[in-house]
Design a protein around this nucleic acid. Structure first.
Lengths: 145, 145
DNA sequence: ACTTGCTTCTACAGCTACTGTAGATGTTAT
DNA sequence: ATAACATCTACAGTAGCTGTAGAAGCAAGT
């Protein structure tokens, strides 16, 4: 069993954040020692590491709750899990695409920079790209019944 | 020139959020109409779209400010821009890697699900992966089974 | 046993990045 | 001209932490 401080160090997460996660129910209530200290097992560390990574990737706690429900209830009806997984996969794919666009632009800039000058930075254009993700204003003419 | 409502619709961003961004200086003070309404140009829409995408990807406003400074000051010393771009590129690469790990696991689950049962969901393991990103505590103890 | 020093405890205030609401005023369609 | 809606300012509230205060637990050295 690990102390909260150990868990915090292992996951690069603030002690208060761990207590906060327990409070909002995304981490289980930790059992306590004689002296009322929280005690954690490896599984708790894994769960917390998962939460932290997902948060850093920009997932809101509600999505993370969803994802965790997949591993918390491995016996739930398959189509429910499938729906959650598909929805999340969709999100993940979109994120990867946009990150790749940003990555390419940053690389282009760095390369150009080595050559001497930047002067034309297109980071904005790269992520503000109207074609692939925005309002349906201009693409709803496609599929009407 | 566009109204704030138009900009909000074009970028899928709340009107109040736009005013908030102006207030904290990440968007410029918009010029006003006769009747005191804010007026925006296409460049503002692009900038805002960029900010929104970056936020969705989990970048804090401070990082976004940094990125925007690249396009705001295209004539700044190259090494400063280079440092910012490299730092951000690094972040981006790490995010992409982790998202790919999550993607693979979600795909595995969905595939398995189509086959009938999930029962072994490893989303947590996938993102809590101690080998590639966490504290160096047990990096060396890894060799023992 | 005592003291020093660190960790953990609860409780609560403060922060970032929004989001919602109230009440007044501007703009547009009928 | 009047209704309906958009925008204005100002401020309160929310999510997701983060910091601080003050008390209590615990481990090491004397």
């Amino acid at each position: 069993m690990y102390t909260i401080g150990h868990v915090a160090r292992a996951t690069d997460c603030k002690v208060q954040t761990i207590r906060y996660y327990e409070q909002i129910g995304i981490l289980p209530q930790a059992p306590r020692s004689e002296g009322n200290r929280r005690l954690y097992a490896q599984a708790d560390i894994d769960r917390l590491a998962f939460i932290r990574h997902a948060r850093e990737l920009g997932f809101p706690l509600d999505s993370i709750r969803d994802l965790l429900s997949l591993s918390d209830n491995p016996d739930q009806p398959c189509d429910a899990a499938d729906a959650i997984a598909c929805r999340q996969l969709d999100q993940v794919n979109r994120r990867i695409e946009r990150l790749n666009a940003l990555k390419r632009e940053l690389e282009r800039m760095i390369k150009q920079c080595r050559g001497g000058k930047i002067s034309d930075c297109r980071v904005i254009e790269v992520l503000s790209d109207h074609g692939q993700c925005l309002k349906d204003d201009h693409q709803m003419a496609e599929a009407s019944p």
